[in-house]
C-alpha cells in the first residue's frame, strides 16, 4: 500500500502536476491577501508569498527527476546528466532584487506613516480632500 503510493508519487508526470497546482494555489493565496488585507506589512508579506510561488514554479519546471545539481564534486567529473543552471541563476538574482524592493517599500511606508500617521490603505484618501 505504502509502496504503491510512493511509486505513484515518484512518477515524473505526477511530480509536475503537484508542482504546478501547488504553486498556483500559493500564488492565489498571496493575491487573496493583497485584495483583502489592509495593513502595509500584511500587503508586503502577501507580495512576498506571490514571489515565492513564482520562484518555486520556475525552479520546479526546470527540474527533471534523476538529474543532479549543476555542480562538480565528489565522484562527478563531467557536466553531463545535470539540471539546467540558467533558471537557477535567474531566480538567484530575482531573490536579491525582491529583497531590495521589499526594503524600499517598507522605508516608503515608514516615511508615509511619519508624515500622516496612517498605517492602513483604506485611510489613504488624501486626494479626496
Amino acid at each position: 500500500m505504502i509502496e504503491t503510493l510512493l511509486n505513484f508519487l515518484n512518477q515524473e508526470e505526477v511530480l509536475q502536476v503537484i508542482i504546478v497546482i501547488g504553486s498556483m494555489i500559493l500564488f492565489f493565496i498571496g493575491l487573496f491577501g493583497i485584495l483583502t488585507q489592509r495593513h502595509f506589512i500584511k500587503i508586503f508579506i502577501s507580495i512576498e508569498i506571490m514571489e515565492i510561488a513564482i520562484f518555486i514554479f520556475f525552479i520546479g519546471l526546470a527540474f527533471q527527476k534523476g538529474k543532479t545539481a549543476p555542480m562538480l564534486g565528489d565522484g562527478i567529473t563531467k557536466f553531463i546528466n545535470m539540471n539546467d543552471p540558467i533558471p537557477h541563476a535567474m531566480i538567484l538574482t530575482a531573490i536579491v532584487i525582491g529583497m531590495a524592493v521589499l526594503a524600499l517599500g517598507v522605508s516608503m511606508a515608514i516615511e508615509y506613516n511619519k508624515l500622516t500617521g496612517i498605517t492602513t490603505i483604506d485611510k489613504m484618501n488624501g486626494l479626496k480632500n
Binding site: I59, G60, A62, F63, A69, M71, N83, H88, I91, L92
Partner: peptide
C-alpha cells in the same frame, strides 16, 4: 526544503 528537493542548492 523544496529548492533542495529540486536539486538547486544555490537557490
Amino acid at each position: 526544503i523544496l529548492f533542495v528537493a529540486f536539486q538547486a542548492p544555490d537557490v
